[in-house]
Simulated scan of single mutants.
Amino acid sequence: MKLVYFAWVRERVGKPEEVVTPPETVVTVTDLIGWLKTRGEEYDYAFENEGVVRTAIDRVHAKPGTAIAGAREIAFFPPMTGG
């Protein structure tokens, strides 16, 4: 699946996107973030406060417990405010 990072999440991870194959035990957004945090300090830093980072699966906002099976793209971004 393709992961896309925006704003300061991208800056902390150090890349705008990547293609990954998580282990079969990774079934939800929360699991995915936990797995990413084990991949290096940059991921641990990017997701140090998991409750702040927002997620979209195939361009639809997703909650932490949302299943990721079949997802083509998962995006991570900080909260946004309108004006």
Score class of each variant (00 low, 15 high):
M1F: 02
M1T: 03
K2Q: 15
K2S: 03
K2Y: 13
L3Q: 06
V4Q: 15
F6H: 07
A7Y: 02
A7H: 11
W8C: 02
V9R: 02
V9A: 05
R10C: 03
R10W: 05
E11S: 14
E11G: 14
V13N: 02
V13C: 01
V13D: 01
G14S: 01
G14I: 03
K15H: 05
K15G: 00
E17A: 15
E18F: 02
E18H: 05
V19E: 15
V20F: 01
T21Y: 00
T21L: 10
T21K: 13
P22Y: 11
P22I: 08
P23I: 12
E24S: 15
E24T: 09
V26I: 11
V27S: 08
V27E: 13
T28N: 02
T28C: 06
T28R: 04
V29W: 08
T30M: 12
T30K: 15
T30E: 08
L32M: 14
I33L: 10
G34N: 15
W35D: 08
L36S: 09
L36G: 01
K37M: 09
T38P: 07
R39Y: 12
E42L: 08
E42Q: 10
Y43S: 06
D44M: 08
D44A: 10
D44R: 13
A46V: 03
F47P: 04
F47G: 11
N49L: 14
E50S: 06
G51R: 10
V52F: 14
V52A: 07
V53D: 00
R54M: 12
T55K: 05
T55V: 06
I57E: 09
I57N: 09
D58W: 09
D58Y: 11
R59M: 09
R59H: 12
H61A: 14
H61E: 13
H61S: 03
A62H: 02
K63M: 13
K63Y: 06
P64V: 06
P64T: 04
P64H: 10
G65A: 06
G65H: 08
T66C: 09
T66W: 01
T66F: 02
T66K: 14
A67H: 14
A69G: 09
G70N: 13
A71E: 03
A71D: 07
R72K: 14
R72H: 10
R72I: 11
E73R: 03
E73P: 06
I74Q: 04
I74N: 01
F76R: 11
P78D: 00
P78M: 01
M80T: 13
M80K: 10
T81P: 12
T81N: 13
G83H: 10
G83T: 07
